[in-house]
Amino acid sequence: MPDLLRLAAQEPFSARSLVYALLVNPLEDLRELQLIQLKASAEPQDFAETLRLVCPVQALPDTHRLPLLELTMPALRQMSLRQHRVFRAQIEALMIADQRLSLFEYTLRCVLHRHLDAQFLPQRQTRPVHNSPQKLAQPVATVLALVAWEGQPQSDPAARAFDIGMRSHIGGDHTHRLPRRGECSLAEFDAGLRTLNQSVPAIKRRGVVARPAELRGALGTPTFSGSLLALLFW
Rank of each mutant, 00 (worst) to 15 (best):
A21N: 12
R194D: 10
I91G: 09
L53A: 03
R16D: 00
P74R: 13
V86F: 12
P139R: 06
R177K: 14
H176A: 14
L232M: 07
L4K: 04
P222V: 02
D117W: 03
A145W: 07
A187S: 06
V24C: 11
M79Y: 14
A159K: 03
P128E: 14
N131M: 08
P26E: 06
I91K: 05
A42K: 00
H84I: 01
W149V: 08
Q138S: 12
D163R: 02
L23V: 03
A9H: 01
L112G: 10
N25T: 13
D98M: 08
T223H: 00
A42M: 03
V208F: 09
K39I: 11
T50R: 04
Q37D: 15
S14P: 00
R181E: 11
E28M: 10
A141Y: 06
C184W: 01
P44K: 14
R100Q: 04
S225E: 05
L76A: 04
R127Y: 03
L94W: 14
L27C: 08
L5S: 08
P128N: 12
P2L: 15
A145D: 09
Q152R: 09
R77E: 09
A213N: 05
S132M: 07
L69Q: 02
F189M: 10
L22M: 14
G220T: 12
A202P: 00
F87C: 01
N197C: 11
A93S: 07
A48C: 04
D46K: 06
T175F: 08
L22D: 12
C55K: 10
I164Y: 04
V147R: 03
L23H: 05
Q90A: 14
S199P: 00
V140D: 06
H130M: 08
F120R: 05
A210W: 04
R88W: 10
S132D: 15
Q45P: 00
R82I: 13
H115M: 12
L69W: 02
F47D: 07
L35C: 14
Q83R: 13
D62Y: 03
V143Q: 01
V143E: 08
V143G: 03
L112H: 15
L136A: 01
A89Y: 12
D156C: 05
L60I: 03
A210F: 03
A202V: 06
F162I: 02
R88Q: 14
R124G: 09
A40D: 15
V209Y: 05
T107V: 09
Q45W: 04
G226W: 13
